[in-house]
C-alpha cells in the first residue's frame, strides 16, 4: 500500500488537506499498535508537506528525483553568490522572503501541472533547491544547550 492508499486518498498531487487530516485522525484512533501509528505518521508527514509529497508522487510515477539539470545548477550557484554578496542583514532577510514567495508560486504551479510529469519534475527540482537554500540559512531554534 502506498501513502495515499493508507490514508484513503486518490493518488493526486493536489490534495484536500482537511480530508487528509480527517482521515489521519480517524485512522490513528482505530490503529491498534504503535507499528500502525508509526506508518500512519510516516504517511501523514510526507503527504501534508508540499515538497515531500511532490517527491513521493514522482517516485510513485517512477520518475527519478535525484538529478538536477546543469542549467539549474548554474542558476543556483549564481543565486548563492548573490546572496553571499549582501552586506547587511536586512537585504538577506528580504532575499529570503523573495525565495519564500517564489516557493509558494512554484507549489501552485506544481498543482496545475500534475498531468505533465516532465514539467512537474522540472518545477520540483527548482523547488527542492530553493528549499535547501532556505534550510541552510535557518538558525537553530535551540541555539544554546
Amino acid at each position: 500500500m502506498n501513502y495515499f492508499e493508507i490514508l484513503r486518498l486518490p493518488i493526486k498531487y493536489d490534495m484536500d488537506v482537511d480530508l487528509l487530516t480527517k482521515n489521519y485522525f480517524s485512522s490513528l484512533r482505530s490503529s491498534e499498535s504503535s507499528v500502525d501509528s508509526g506508518l500512519l505518521n510516516e504517511a501523514y508527514s510526507v503527504l501534508k508537506n508540499d515538497l515531500k509529497r511532490a517527491e513521493y508522487f514522482l517516485n510513485l510515477k517512477n520518475v527519478s528525483t535525484e538529478k538536477m539539470s546543469s542549467e539549474l545548477a548554474i542558476q543556483m550557484f549564481e543565486m548563492r553568490e548573490k546572496y553571499e554578496s549582501f552586506a547587511n542583514w536586512e537585504e538577506k532577510i528580504e532575499f529570503q522572503k523573495k525565495i519564500k514567495r517564489k516557493i509558494k508560486e512554484l507549489i501552485s504551479y506544481l498543482k496545475e501541472n500534475e498531468g505533465d510529469l516532465k514539467k512537474f519534475s522540472e518545477i520540483f527540482s527548482e523547488l527542492k533547491f530553493l528549499n535547501s537554500f532556505l534550510e541552510k540559512e535557518r538558525s537553530d531554534v535551540y541555539s544554546r544547550d
Partner: peptide, 8 residues
C-alpha cells in the same frame, strides 16, 4: 516536527 512514533 514529525509526528511520533516514527521510523525512518
Amino acid at each position: 516536527n514529525t509526528p511520533i512514533p516514527i521510523t525512518e
